[in-house]
Design a protein around this nucleic acid. Structure first.
Lengths: 341, 341
DNA sequence: ATGGAAAATGCAAGCGCTTACATTGATGGA
DNA sequence: TCCATCAATGTAAGCGCTTGCATTTTCCAT
């Protein structure tokens, strides 16, 4: 009897240990409510049967999943990897599981994935950046799923965000570039469409130029996707401009790595002839040569704080505070004075 | 009435459109079984109510989740990113969702995550490499969850695998190294404990040495974790050996990048004084200088084929075939003849 | 018109769990 | 000795969906 080949259920455990399903459930979820002798017997049965609770059933019954969803634009490069890893570790410590999907920078895919994660009973959601349609937020509202934005910081926006001021950070770097004497500035940006981080970084550069009396319209700007290859292509184009830029500021380290590769290929020496800067300070930045002058983003710290805040929100202990993470410039040598005329 | 603030259910939709829940369910899952007029009405209600099916309930009722789980050792670097991205894309095309977790190379964590994914009703599982305790496989067996191994290939093992021959690929590279004239060979390997890929790569080098009449015991071998920093440290140690190795073969591109960085730091020129090789051919390999001579692994192809095979298994269309993916050497310049004495 | 097959829809039984409430049995103070 | 109290456990009602089977409707050949 009971020789079916399928996974054991709560009921099986209950029978095997001669108690009710309620008691088994309590053994697993609030052991202190069950007397020791019973508990031992039950846990023994759990072990011998190799019982694992059916998650879907738990979610349905308890209306709680201890699952947090995260939707990142891409897993294809390391930009989000480190922060997300820390986010996950922190969640695990608090008994939550992380579900990740990547949207390939496509708002439609992202919308779909948000629905999926909500349908899966995610207790909370981590999103990247604020830029998305209002109906997405309305949907989250209706389903009462707390959400948090990361990699971006804007205390006036909803949802709350744990991140850094992209514009300010890039502005600081731009200031440093200008102070070094550069006047012909180029920028390779990630696509700004639907990407507030990319937008803000461009803005940071423009503002710094403005503040230093440079014509912001003179910025040679190329937008492209965050791929090494694309960075290389863009750099190639920029080099045929006249006057040729003396510095190429990149929207992130990936693009910068592409730019460096292309420079090498073209026999342009960095930083002697052209300076190049990055953003993010992922591992790549240290490994290319010359190593990148870039903006260091404390990804782990961000991941950790985001996790804590989101858990607090999920558990009703916080209404959602925004947290600003400090970035800092890292000088590694890919930025120098422009060459003499 | 019905003014509760929570998400709409099938029942709500049924009432709103004046049909039974069965009909609504059918509208969503097998529309052809419902007459057009009804269907339109129902779908309209779905839209206005903003209904999303409750996933947990679906899984419970249908005992099917259209979810595939993948557990990778790490998200922290790009080794698995590309293949996994393709895996996911392929799954999506077939209507499946991917759930990813990373185990941090810890078998206990991995075991836990396998349980989690199974409990979540994953229809199938993608694992990396074959090396894990038998009870894990027994558990999967009992729960009848089809699983597939990737990044590794061994047609004689269960579960079936879609990957490449790590030993053979590394052996080929080693052959190339030896043919170039190197006699003092060093290797920086990933930790081989519980990592059959790392083991196989070491084995590939040893075998090639043996086949070429070199003493396999003379291989200077350091094991460490797959981090740039660790690669640098290991390289540093190897350089103080005597006789100094003329080539450092690395277990993957990440380690090789670290080695190159350290070489640069120590003023050792690559490949003039010491050659360095990688494995994987991730983007990093093209960006460092000199660009890495490495083994190209067609990650996307592997991801795609793995997805197809696993889906076939899940849908009962395949018993599980193993598929071998071809790798190839990529010569980029970090490997040259050893320097003259 | 009319019977009957086929198409469309409804009914209701679960899926495996949690939990409010009910029941049982000790325990101890009056 | 008796009953209020409390700890331990059991009972059973859902959670929101799918689906086998029953019922109703449609439609056509007669």
């Amino acid at each position: 009897m009971g020789k079916t080949r399928s996974a054991p259920t709560l009921n099986d455990v209950a029978k095997a240990s001669g108690v009710s399903t309620a008691t088994v459930s309590r053994c697993l979820n609030s052991p202190e409510r069950v007397i020791e002798t019973t508990r031992k017997r039950v846990l023994q049965a759990v072990k011998t049967l190799g019982y694992t609770p059916n998650f879907a059933a738990q979610v349905m019954a308890a209306n709680r999943s201890f699952t947090i969803g995260a939707i990142i634009p891409t897993m294809d490069n390391a930009i989000f990897a480190r922060g997300l890893q820390e986010f996950q570790d922190q969640l695990r410590e608090s008994g939550y599981t992380l579900l990740v999907s990547s949207s390939a920078y496509d708002p439609e895919v992202e919308r779909e994935q948000i629905r999926t994660l909500v349908a899966r009973g995610a207790d909370g959601l981590l999103l990247i950046g604020h830029a998305r349609d209002a109906d997405v937020y309305a949907y989250l509202e209706r389903h009462q799923v707390p959400s948090l934005v990361a990699w971006s910081y804007d205390p006036h926006m909803h949802p709350p965000s744990v991140g850094f001021g992209n514009a300010a950070a890039m502005g600081e770097l731009a200031q440093s570039v200008i102070s070094a004497g550069h006047r012909h500035i180029a920028m390779i940006s990630g696509n700004t469409q639907g990407n507030d981080r990319a937008q803000a970084r461009v803005e940071g550069v423009l503002r710094a130029m403005d503040e230093n009396g440079l014509d912001a319209n003179s910025l040679a700007l190329i937008e492209t996707t965050y791929e090494i290859e694309k960075g290389a292509e863009a750099f190639d184009q920029l080099m045929s401009l006249s006057p040729r830029p003396t510095v190429v500021m990149c929207g992130n380290d990936v693009l910068a790595a592409g730019a460096l590769r292309q420079a090498d290929l073209m026999g342009i020496s960095v930083p002697e002839q052209v300076s190049v800067t990055g953003f993010d300070d992922i591992e790549l930045a240290e490994v290319v040569s010359p190593a990148l002058t870039t903006v260091h983003v404390p990804h782990r710290e961000m991941g950790r704080k985001a996790a804590r805040e989101l858990i607090a929100m999920v558990e009703g202990k916080s209404e959602g505070r925004s947290i600003c993470i400090d970035t800092r410039l890292v000088n590694r040598g890919s930025l120098a004075k422009p060459p003499r005329q």
